[in-house]
């Protein structure tokens, strides 16, 4: 009876391996940078997009503190401390980080606890929202211009003598 059991264990292990490979390759296809840390914020895994973002290989990042990586590479002009943030909002959340103003580079950092064990590890996702932010900034700018034009238009009166528009 032990041989069939060993066979079944081997096939289970192979199936698990295939599932892990599928998961790893699927996560590699995600265009957002993804990171998994332990409960203390120590980096356990990241995808290729995160390696590109940080310009370091996964090997160089594993075991390091995501907070330190964040401080050195992603903090931009924010004084955000991930460690404090996780303590305050351990159930997850989202913050926006302005990494650079010219050209504008903005990231949305979202995190959630992974309920696999206690204390819970975290999964982080970095969404590059620079294009959306630039578009919103342009929309705001154009709305302000329109408002200025409208304000100027209100100051225009028609001359009662010659019928031409004049500014007050």
């Amino acid at each position: 009876m032990s041989a069939p059991r060993a066979d079944s264990e081997s096939s289970l292990v192979l199936e698990l391996g295939r599932s892990l490979a599928r998961l790893e390759l699927a996560l590699a296809q995600i265009s957002h940078a993804q990171v998994i840390t332990d409960a203390a914020g120590c980096l356990l895994w990241c995808n290729g997009r995160f390696e590109q973002l940080i310009q370091k290989s996964r090997l160089q990042l594993l075991g390091g503190s995501l907070d330190q990586v964040h401080q050195s590479r992603l903090a931009g002009d924010s004084s955000l401390n991930l460690h404090d943030l996780l303590e305050q909002r351990c159930h997850g959340g989202m913050v926006t980080l302005v990494l650079d103003r010219e050209p504008r580079q903005v990231m949305e950092l979202e995190w959630r606890p992974v309920q696999s064990e206690q204390p819970a590890p975290y999964v982080f996702s970095f969404h590059d929202v620079s294009d959306r932010e630039s578009l919103q900034a342009l929309q705001l700018q154009s709305r302000q211009l329109v408002d200025e034009q409208l304000a100027l238009a209100q100051q225009v009166v028609t001359c009662p003598v010659n019928g031409l528009p004049n500014r007050r």
């Binding site: 892990l20 490979a21 599928r22 790893e24």
Partner: peptide, 8 residues
């Protein structure tokens, strides 16, 4: 993860 990916 890496070992599984390599096997695949």
């Amino acid at each position: 993860f890496g070992l599984s990916r390599f096997q695949a």
